[in-house]
């Protein structure tokens, strides 16, 4: 791969957190035990405009990895390059949709979405833009609603709209649909594919759902249990729509289940 082919590059990345202790120990006895290793030697790269999914057991450090790539946290070793430049901090070109609800509860849907709207354009233009994005995610008529007055799925949509309106270069999504019911999740999946086709952002997407990953991803990264290491880095060059029940994808699906220590047929 040439350098221009890499949107994001993660090299020899390590991350550990200080372990909280109720009882203070003398600094002499094993200082290394105070550290809890979360990510161990992560290496991968992502091509521009690709949809990359991350799966792995709970607590293996997926969210931590994405937070580091987005610049919210610093690794203890290794580095992250975006467009060949080292990441220094968060950027409004790299929008993160957090695992927890990230809409400001004190702003209405349209005020929240307007946060991402073009800062240079005039108020009238911005209003139009917000309206357009509300419409895009099917929230027309709910612009004056506060987040607590929206359903879980609508909140997620509003958050996606707030991210998309910035026309992000990279979109980070941390289990954005995990809290939704199965049907809504399927629907959101489809919308994500449309969004990706339309916006051409590079998307990094965490999920617990193997099928979701197989349907969405151009590249699939599987992390091992903590400390998270890359267990597999799979390319999925299959066209959409994808049928997981037959052919290559069905074989791959079985393989991934086994890789994660699960049985595909119960």
């Amino acid at each position: 791969m040439t350098a221009t082919n890499k949107k994001i590059e993660v090299r020899n990345l390590f991350k550990s957190y200080q372990e909280r202790r109720t009882r203070k120990r003398s600094p002499r006895d094993c200082p290394h035990q105070h550290e809890c290793l979360v990510l161990k030697n992560i290496n991968f790269s992502v091509a521009p405009e690709k949809f990359t999914c991350f799966i792995g057991p709970s607590g293996c450090g997926k969210s931590t990895l994405l937070r580091i790539i987005a610049g919210f946290e610093k690794p203890v070793a290794g580095k992250v390059l975006i467009d060949g430049k080292k990441v220094k901090g968060p950027s409004s070109k790299h929008i993160f949709v957090f695992q927890e609800d990230g809409l400001f509860p004190w702003m209405t849907a349209s005020q929240n979405i307007a946060l991402g709207a073009g800062k240079t354009s005039g108020p009238e233009e911005r209003r139009k833009q917000v309206e357009e994005y509300l419409d895009l995610v099917g929230l027309k008529g709910f612009e004056k609603h506060y987040p607590h007055e929206l359903s879980g799925g609508m909140r997620r949509r509003a958050e996606v709209a707030r991210a998309l309106i910035t026309n992000p270069d990279i979109l980070f999504m941390d289990e954005p649909f995990a809290a939704l019911d199965y049907l809504t999740r399927l629907q959101m999946r489809e919308e994500m594919l449309n969004v990706h086709a339309m916006f051409k952002s590079t998307i990094l997407f965490i999920t617990h759902d193997i099928d979701e990953a197989l349907q969405l991803a151009d590249q699939l990264i599987i992390l091992s249990d903590r400390p998270g290491k890359i267990k597999a880095d799979i390319s999925l060059p299959y066209p959409h729509p994808r049928d997981l029940g037959t052919g290559e994808l069905s074989r791959l699906r079985k393989e991934i289940y086994f890789l994660m220590g699960l049985h595909p047929a119960l």
Binding site: G89, P90, H94, I95, F96, E100, D101, G102, F104, L115
Partner: peptide, 22 residues
Amino acid sequence: KSTYLRVAENFGIRGTAFYLKV
């Protein structure tokens, strides 16, 4: 919530706007 502070940082909300809106 730290998520809200991160969101503010992410969307580049700074200065007076940060104090008044966040």
